[in-house]
């Protein structure tokens, strides 16, 4: 047997040229799509470092000044705090109702189960602008009927945002519950754990990734919501997305770019941290 051959990869691929071309074309389109998604973020980041205020290309130089401007801008700061507060409160309330609801939907057999599930996902399907408007007139009617000053209140805003959080949390928690192997619960009970302990020590840790992911997605969809907040913020209050929109309708400059980059950075850090606990590729 004379098999003294070099182990160097053979020249030429497995595919004939025509197919190899096709494969490169396919990969090329994928790359274009990926860059396309990132393009706006790249350009806004670039702008935030321009030296001059007018966003004309090419930049006259580069500077970090605008980040100072952004951080000292009272309006953006207040808007950021409101958005963060709103997101946290809405997420906590949303989780509190979504976790039991998910358990009920996955574990119990009752009539109308499918309907309930669809209902809970509905806020994702109703257009934001429509839902915001509908909630606004709803609150108008409540205010008229009960003279309860709900219109434009923080509570009214939170209620709307809870609606945004519920579908995400229900969706992700039910998904992790469905994938949960129930013989683990039986094993725990066989080992002497009661139902509550079983839930706390076995079920909860197993579905925690789903809960964390649901909370993250819920928070972010509340934090980034524009359309609903437009209707529900009262006078003198703005959320960060509204503040950014209104500023951009007026002008674009490196200050707003810096604000945007800070927001992107916060979200990116949140995602990377979450990814350490729950693989994002498995939950989205």
């Amino acid at each position: 047997m004379s098999l003294a051959r070099s182990d160097a990869p053979a020249a030429g691929g497995l595919l004939p040229d025509r197919w190899r071309l096709g494969r490169w074309l396919f990969k090329g389109v994928a790359l274009v799509a990926f860059l396309y998604i990132l393009t706006p973020l790249i350009f806004i980041t670039w702008l935030s470092f321009y030296a001059q205020e007018i966003p004309s290309y090419p930049p006259e130089g580069y500077s970090l000044n605008w980040y100072g401007q952004a951080l000292n801008n009272e309006r953006f700061l207040k808007a950021f705090l409101l958005s963060a507060q709103l997101g946290v409160v809405a997420t906590l309330i949303g989780l509190a109702v979504a976790l039991p609801a998910s358990l009920g939907i996955v574990r119990l057999r009752f009539r109308g189960r499918g309907t309930v599930n669809n209902l809970l996902l509905m806020p994702l399907i109703v257009p934001g602008i429509v839902l915001g408007f509908a909630l606004y007139v709803f609150q108008v009617e409540i205010a008229i009927a009960t003279s309860w000053p709900i219109l434009g209140s923080f509570g009214g805003l939170v209620f709307g945002h809870v609606l945004l959080v519920i579908p995400w949390t229900v969706r992700l928690i039910t998904a992790s519950l469905v994938g949960f192997d129930r013989t683990l619960e039986e094993a725990a009970q066989n080992l002497g754990a009661n139902r509550f302990t079983t839930f706390r020590r076995v079920t909860m840790p197993a579905i925690l990734p789903g809960i964390v992911a649901g909370a993250l997605f819920g928070f972010v969809s509340s934090f980034g919501n524009l359309e609903m907040s437009l209707f529900l913020v009262g006078p003198g209050r703005t959320t960060l997305p509204i503040a950014i929109l209104q500023y951009l309708q007026w002008k674009i400059d490196p200050t707003i770019a810096a604000v945007s980059v800070l927001q992107i950075a916060i979200i990116a850090v949140a995602m990377l941290v979450t990814d350490r606990f729950v693989k994002i590729s498995r939950v989205v």
Binding site: L38, P40, I44, L47, G224, M271, I280
Partner: peptide
């Protein structure tokens, strides 16, 4: 995923500079 969460206004701003 990140752009998904960044907000439409911010991404529009990116296109505006472009």
């Amino acid at each position: 995923v990140i752009p998904l969460f960044v907000g439409n206004a911010v991404r529009a701003a990116g296109w505006m500079t472009l």
